[in-house]
Amino acid sequence: MKNILITGGAGFIGSNLALKLIEKGYKITVLDNLSKQIHGDNPEITSTLYRSIKDKVTFIEGTVTSREDWKKALENQNIIVHFAAETGTGQSMYCIEKYTEVNIKGTAIMLDLLANNKYSVEKVIIASSRSIYGEGKYEHPKLGIVYPSHRNEKNMLEGDFEVRYKDSEILKLLPTDEESKIHPSSVYGITKQNQEQMVMTVCPTLGISPVSFRYQNVYGPGQSLSNPYTGILSIFSTQIRNNNGIQIFEDGKETRDFVFIDDVVDATVRGIEKEEANGNIFNVGTGVATDVLTVANSLISAYKIDVAVTITGKFRLGDIRHNYADLTKISSLLGFEPKVLFADGIKKFSSWVLEQEIQEDKLTKSLEEMKMKGLLK
């Protein structure tokens, strides 16, 4: 079986993928910096994700911004799964240098080393994101398919959060396919677009097969419950278990495509193992849009803790209104079909959460940061 390097392999998706690949007989190396924001002050104690893999993989504590760490990690590897990245739409809008350095420079170092040295790498899987689509794909009543730009801040301040076209027509939401226009509305989205484009452009010139997965909103047991910057299910869960009310942005009708971790791992393994994946870009999701108010009420019901839900009308610059994936391509080429419905996934996730220690609710602090930067309205 092949040797596989997973950067960010101690993270939520990376650790779950590592365990599945080990089960299938692959030899796994992980390069991860054990970020405090995700893994806590002492990962040996505070990170269940790190503990789940640390004795089962060759672990390199390091960063993708270090050329020397990359050199150690790349030796004798056949496949690279590049997950290591700064994540979070909101935080990316004021930690611009950090997101650019880790996501873009980190990927550039990897490709530079592959281009100028002899390694045994045959395939690179890059973790892209639904964020690169920006506001996504819509149908205009007269013009047909359109790709609207960022929503108007003035309209949103007046409580109108819907996506409109230049002529103010209300649009019909459509699933976003891989041929849709790429126009991210956040720094995070820009960095993911750049990562994907570099890998898909450079790797073929080196005789390496590239594969990109544009993941939707991934959730499930194991995701960080202490990170207030990303993961709406985790953020809401921590608020509920602290008996704090949930503050919902906009009008609560904004939607996302929530895809369960097991389905994401399944799709990624198919990308690793199937030659049909080579050179292709795939959406990974469920193809179903679920609104944020439904998420909040589902979690309250699951935890049986009655907290207030407040529709605040506030919004973050850089956030999109809706997005859900068209899965036609990944179904056709890789045979992927999501198996976990949102209702079932919520049950599995909430059951796991109830077994964990209640984390400190740090959301207020993170929102204050955004407000000070002028990004929370």
Results as ranks from 00 to 15, higher is better:
L327E: 00
T205A: 11
G231F: 04
D319V: 02
G313L: 02
N244G: 05
F315R: 03
Y26D: 06
K166D: 08
A10M: 03
V124P: 04
L375M: 03
I79Q: 01
K71C: 13
S52R: 00
I281E: 10
T48L: 13
N297F: 13
I320L: 10
I190A: 04
K166P: 00
S120C: 08
T58S: 14
K314D: 01
Y219Q: 10
T176W: 05
T89Y: 01
E135Q: 13
I79E: 05
Q197K: 14
P204Q: 07
E337S: 15
G106L: 01
S52E: 12
F213S: 08
F59A: 12
F12L: 04
K2Q: 12
V187S: 12
S131L: 01
D262K: 07
E23Y: 12
L114Y: 08
I170S: 10
T238L: 09
R316T: 03
E196L: 12
D167I: 01
S185R: 00
S52P: 03
F282P: 01
K2W: 09
Q197W: 11
A85T: 08
S212G: 13
P228S: 08
G14L: 10
I346F: 09
N3V: 09
L363P: 00
K142P: 02
I182F: 06
Y324D: 02
E357Q: 15
W70H: 04
S351C: 11
F260N: 02
Y119M: 12
T176Y: 02
K377S: 14
T100F: 14
K362A: 06
R214M: 11
G335H: 13
I13R: 07
E61R: 15
K98A: 13
A296P: 08
N217E: 15
Y119R: 00
G345L: 10
V102C: 06
V288W: 00
G231V: 04
I6G: 10
I311Y: 04
D361Q: 07
S168N: 14
G252N: 05
S224H: 06
N33M: 14
K20H: 09
W70E: 05
N155T: 06
G207A: 05
G220F: 02
Y133R: 02
D251I: 00
K181D: 10
V57M: 05
S351A: 15
G222T: 01
I6D: 09
S92R: 07
K373H: 13
V202Q: 09
Q91R: 15
K192G: 07
S366R: 05
I190C: 14
T268V: 11
